[in-house]
Structure formats: structure tokens, C-alpha cells
Nucleic acid binder design. Structure first.
Lengths: 147, 147
DNA sequence: TATTGTTATACTCTATAACTATA
DNA sequence: TATAGTTATAGAGTATAACAATA
């Protein structure tokens, strides 16, 4: 069986459908925790790296320092993070998770695992492995196509 | 081989990686055409449905009427659409693609096909079919998990 | 009365540019 | 002189609420 252009665009359309669904799902899930995607991304960085300067956050998030000021303002205002003095550099600010922030991250980890189970637990091992491998292929192609 | 929770979260992480990549890619591609994702979504609706009232656009995009006013303002200002009188209902506005808008949509269709080729043309038929089928599974699971 | 789209207002995320304090 | 973060300003996308014109 030859592949037609239709088969190829169908694969892309299905992929995009999943992309849109995941976006919506993420946004709704986070909204229930009082978070947006950019704010959750920042929290996630703190969760994995420990306290960070705003400069480091700016680099990691690939947004301007000004933008980080705004995100941290929001997260501090809603109790997820605190600003503290940098021990040696008095220009810099260290942003740390509060207990509430850490608790929220733990909840996100849990619901991440829960989602993984709901999506993949019933999938036969071989099928799952083949899916993951195909995903890796597509991801690599997309990366190439862009650089 | 038993699946571990690690296998499941790895599958989810790979999926999310792809979601993020696609989002970035889409955004960059559209930016080159002078468009954002929400504006492109509106154009796409006009492309597939013909001229629509703002009310119909509001329903289809699932945003407020006020938001549609803003999106149409932007798209009209950059020459992608025009506002015209509704033939029978003098309250309503019909939004139509300009020639520039139609041309842009055609270009989007082309680059959509091009991307489909780059991502999937080299994939063996059987592997592609299995990937699409797994995507459909995951999409269905995600839909269930939410309702 | 109900509907269409607008004005008024506000919040989040994003950017650039100018500035302060510190290194 | 360079760096960290802020204030000032701006624009896009989102929302609610009040309102005008029309059905």
C-alpha cells in the first residue's frame, strides 16, 4: 500500500488534534490550582533546581527579565513563592517555593502520574513502546525541520 | 515485560515534549505570515465556512463577542478580512476573507502539507498506521478523562 | 424582550527602553 | 563598565458589565 499525501496530512491533523487537546487540558488543570501555564513553568523550574535568581529564571524560561518580574509578582501575591536576598550578590533576588508552592508541585506530580496511567496503562506494552518510538521520530524530524 | 509507572510517565513526557514543540513551531510559522494563533484560527474558520457573523465566530472560537471584536479589528487592520453588512439583519456584521486573507490561507495549506511530508513521508506505512491509531486512542482517553 | 456588536474597564503575558543599585 | 532587577510604556488576548441599535 502506497502512502498518499492524504495519509500524511491525516497523521498531522491527528497530531495537531492531540496538541490542542493537551493544551486545553493543561490549562484547565492548572486553572483549578490557581495557576497559568507560564507561572506553572516557573514553579516547575524551582521544583527541579531549587531557589533561582530571576536572571536564571529569565534565561531558563526564555523571556525578558521584565517578564520574570511580573510572573514572580503574581506568584508571590498568590503565595506560591517568596523573594529573598541573594547571600552574596546584593543586586540579585533568590526566588524560592513556599510550602504552598511545594505542596502544589507535589499535587501536580501526582496528577501527572494519574494522567499517565489513564492514558497509557491499558495500552499493550509493545504498542506503547512503538508509540513512544514513533513520537521520538516525529520530535526529531520537527527539530530538524526547524534548525 | 511489565510496564512500570516510569514507562507510563515517560510516554506522557514524550507526548508533552511534542506538544510544546508543535506549539512553538506553529507560533513561529504564523508569526512569519503576520499572524497569531487566535487570529489564524479565526481565518481558518472563514476559510472553511465562508463569511460568518461575529456572533457565529464567537461561538465557534469559544470566546466572548468582545474578544471577536478585537480579533477582527486586528485582522481587518492588517488586511486579512473585511467587515460587511449582513444582507438581512442590520444588527449583524459579516466577516469575510480578503484576497490577501485567501492567499495566506492557501500558503498555510501548502506549508501544512509540506510539514506533513517532512514528518511522515519517510515513515514505513505500517508504522505510520500504528502511530495514527495510537494517537486516536490517546485522544479518546484524554477526552474521556475530561468529561 | 432578546440579540448583535460596541464602549468601558481590567487582568495576564509579552516586549523594549530607561534607570537604579550593585559588582 | 557590566549585570540584576525595576519603573514606564505598549500591545495582544482574554474576561465582565453596561449600552446602543435592531429584531
Amino acid at each position: 500500500m502506497m502512502k498518499s499525501i492524504h495519509d500524511l496530512t491525516e497523521a498531522l491533523d491527528r497530531t495537531l488534534e492531540l496538541v490542542v487537546l493537551f493544551n486545553d487540558d493543561m490549562q484547565q488543570e492548572l486553572a483549578r490550582l490557581g495557576l497559568s501555564v507560564p507561572r506553572a513553568h516557573l514553579l516547575w523550574l524551582l521544583h527541579h533546581n531549587g531557589p533561582m535568581t530571576q536572571r536564571a529564571l529569565s534565561d531558563a524560561l526564555d523571556v525578558t527579565p521584565r517578564n520574570v518580574t511580573g510572573l514572580v509578582d503574581g506568584l508571590a501575591g498568590t503565595g506560591f513563592v517568596t523573594r529573598e536576598q541573594h547571600p552574596t550578590d546584593r543586586r540579585a533576588t533568590l526566588v524560592s517555593l513556599t510550602e504552598q508552592g511545594a505542596t502544589t508541585l507535589a499535587a501536580m506530580d501526582e496528577s501527572h502520574k494519574e494522567l499517565a496511567r489513564r492514558l497509557f496503562a491499558d495500552m499493550p506494552s509493545a504498542r506503547l513502546a512503538s508509540f513512544v518510538s514513533a513520537l521520538a521520530d516525529v520530535t526529531a524530524r520537527l527539530r530538524e525541520a526547524r534548525s
